[in-house]
Structures are given as structure tokens and as C-alpha cells.
Amino acid sequence: MSGPTPEEAEILDFQAHCDAFYPPDAVSASVEQQRRWYDALCAAFDPGRPEGVAAEDRPLGAIPARFYRPAHVSTDATILYLHGGGFVVGSLDSHDTVCAELAQGTGAELVAIDYRLAPEHRWPAAFEDGWAALSALLAQGRHVVLAGDSAGGNLAAGLAVRARNEGVCGIVGLALIYPGLGGDLASGSYAEMAEAPGLSTADVRYYRELYAAPETDPVAHPLRAESLAGLPPTFVSAARFDPLRDDARLFAGRLAAAGVDVSFREEPQMIHAWLRARHMSPGARAGFAALVTELGRLARLT
């Protein structure tokens, strides 16, 4: 690997394990092969659901979904989780234990959805699936915290922007984990971390082109929104060694400038997709604990 890299031995070991399943040049392979690699990687880092969390697959409206319920529910808010994967890979299974652990740690029911993927379904398919799921939860009278990592963070932020624009009520929080929000691919962390381990700027460009969202659409690229005023209380988590880092920094800064209740945390030794390293890396473990705390706080703002 070239360019700036972490010093934490455990996160470097994590990346070496990832490279054994999902090579750095994976985007040069077919989408079908990329999905096989990603599924194998996810299975290798799956510790199993924690005891006491029930999970049930059932549709949310017309959208495939998995409902997680911890043994002790301590809030009436529901977390709607959108998984990462560049809009190209990922599923209910890829983030299963992440979602189960978040439900357990926050004491909140969590719903994950299986949105449509590119290139079979380009923009706005994934977003519209997220909107349909959100609308179904709100129609049930639920208070919702939107959450997601990477591409899922993009979708969560876009849903919050559209809901704000349309005067939709019921969204009580927003949590974004190393989100891609439409930043300039030629500057900032996209230049500094262009060859970062786990995700390169070239990879980001590939995923954007495959997803084919309009560059100027503020729902597809929330950093392009004219104003972020009126968004719900938000937690933003960035990874230091990630081309997407400055998307998170800029979004959090703009939220603060707009008067939104925002908490920002940058993991100093982390790379993109560190969620999977939460059981082997001290830095990832600390980042995940902070995520649970902040997500739980948002779920109790009802």
C-alpha cells in the first residue's frame, strides 16, 4: 500500500485479512465476482448475533427487511439502517451482526432493508427503496433514527434532506458512519488518501459512475444541498485514513454552522469499513462503542 497508512497493528492485520478475500483491484472484476468476494469477506468477520436479540425477516411495505429486537427495549424510536457497499454489494446478511449489536447496545428496535443494487438498478432505485421503507415506518407512527455506513450513510443523509424539504415529520436522528456525500474527487482527502487501504479514490469514482446519480442532485449528493438547516440531530463518524473522510468533516461542519445539533468523531487510526474490525482492533472497538452511545442518545430524543 502507498500513501499515508495507520500505525495500529491490529487494523493493518485486519486489512491484510480483507485483502485475502477482496483484493485491492476488486473493481476490475465483474460485479458478480465482487459480490462473491464481499459475501465471503463478510462471512469471515461474522461473530454471530449476540444472545437475546431476536431477528425476523419480513417485508416493510414492498421492501425486503430484517427486524431486530433486543431483549430489553428502552426507547420507542426505531433505527432504520442502510448498509454500505458502494450501492453495488451488500445485503441483509452482510451487516447482520453489526445491526444486531447496534440493536442490543442501544436498546432500540432496528430495521435493516435490502435495497436494490447497481448496476442492475441505478439511481434512484436504492434511494426510493429507502424512502418507501422510511415512509412505511412513519405511517406506523414510529419515531425513526436514520443510520448507515458508507453508501448507506449517503442514503440516510439523502433521506433526511428529502424529508426536510417535504416537511415530513418523525425523523428524530441521523447517524452517518464514514459516509460518501458527494465531495470533490480531486481535492482534500480524495487527493491525500487516494491510495488508502481498503478504499481508493478510484474505487469511489467507479461506484459513483456505476450508481449514476446526477452530480448536482442534493438528495443524491447531500453536500450539494444549498442548506442543511432543519436536519435532525446528527452523529457523524469519519475514518482518518479514508478518501471519504472530508465528506464527513465538511458535512458535520455545515450542520454545526446551520445550527443543527451535531456530534462529530474522527477515528485517528481507522480506515474505511472499520466496522468489521470492531472485535479485533482497539481503535475500531472504541469507535463502535462511541457509535452505540451516540445512536442510543439519538434514539432517546423522542
Rank of each mutant, 00 (worst) to 15 (best):
F45R: 03
S263E: 14
P4C: 01
D242V: 03
A163E: 10
I171F: 06
L176G: 02
F241R: 05
P24G: 09
P47F: 04
L223Y: 05
D46E: 14
G84A: 01
D19K: 02
E215G: 10
P24I: 07
L138F: 14
A191F: 10
G84K: 01
A77R: 01
P218G: 00
A258E: 06
R164N: 04
A229H: 08
M193E: 08
R245F: 10
P243H: 09
T201R: 07
V145N: 05
Q33W: 09
V260G: 02
L110E: 01
A290Y: 08
D46W: 07
A273P: 07
P64D: 08
A108Y: 06
R69C: 08
F251G: 06
T201W: 06
G167R: 11
A191H: 15
G84I: 00
G48Q: 12
A239R: 04
Y22W: 10
C169V: 12
G61Q: 08
S94V: 03
E56M: 10
T78Q: 08
G283R: 03
E32C: 06
D261M: 04
D217C: 06
R58P: 06
D39N: 15
R254K: 05
P233L: 00
R36G: 14
A160C: 14
V145C: 07
R276S: 12
A191N: 09
P222Y: 04
S187V: 15
A257Q: 08
L146R: 01
M270N: 15
D46L: 08
D46A: 10
F235V: 02
Q15K: 09
R116S: 01
R300Y: 14
R240Q: 09
S281H: 06
D76P: 05
R265A: 13
P243C: 09
V111F: 07
E101I: 06
A29T: 15
D25A: 11
S2T: 14
A147I: 01
W37A: 07
A194N: 03
A239V: 04
L210S: 11
L82P: 02
R300V: 14
F127D: 02
V27S: 13
P218N: 00
G148S: 04
V89R: 12
A289G: 14
A118P: 00
H72G: 09
G107L: 01
A100S: 11
R276H: 13
A239P: 05
A126W: 02
R66I: 09
A194I: 04
L223M: 07
D25M: 13
R49H: 14
E226T: 03
L155K: 05
A26V: 15
A136M: 04
A54F: 10
F251A: 07
R254V: 00
A29N: 13
L146A: 03
V31S: 09
